[in-house]
Design a protein around this nucleic acid. Sequence first.
DNA 1: CGGAAGATCCACT
DNA 2: GTGGATCTTCCGA
Length: 212
Amino acid sequence: MAVDFEAMQAYRTLPVSFYRRPADQVARDLLGRFVVRELEGERLVVKVVETEAYLGVGDRASHGWSGRRTRRNRTLFEAGGVAYVYLIYGLHYCLNAVTGAGADGSAVLLRAGEPLFGLDRISQNRSLAGRIRPGDLAGGPGKLCQALSIDRGHDGQSLDRGELRLTVGEPETVEAIAVARRVGVDYAGDAARWPLRFAIRGNRHVSRPRPW
DNA sequence: CGGAAGATCCACT
DNA sequence: GTGGATCTTCCGA
């Protein structure tokens, strides 16, 4: 089989400089990129179709709000380019890409993905069999982590190498991006209304409520 | 040391 | 649309 140069381009790893910018910019730019997970010799790939920016110290919805550092969120304050993974509701893991130059507590939550490769394994990880509807596999932050077998062990790992990477993929054009307020942060006052949720307009794997 | 909350998901009506 | 699951983490006393 001939070398697939087009695919190789799509699988080029994003450099850490990509993340060392404001979280809202990174959140937009992550749409269409690929999450590549090497799991026991198997390669699982999903396309990022939904993200949310969390601005850190000045953002009441952010785990980094007011600069509070704890054992759980300490990687949030590292320089951009590492994973921040936390457990929510005692049940579900959420994957973030830490952003900024460091110490500002900002990050981008990966809310949903469209599975491209490794469907069998992903379905297995999700404990689903047959009759799968769009969004069932990775259409939500908890589902995405379960689909790719991501847990707290990935917290702090670099995203430009290793078993969990983000690659160039197929970047979205600006006009295809839907913007909305973030999900599940009603407690955050004004910050709850900030337009920091981004999704690929019309993509069937985007979680509810739909931002378009 | 106790209490409460949480960047969610699923089943059920 | 609603409620329950489930448990780590954090904070205040």
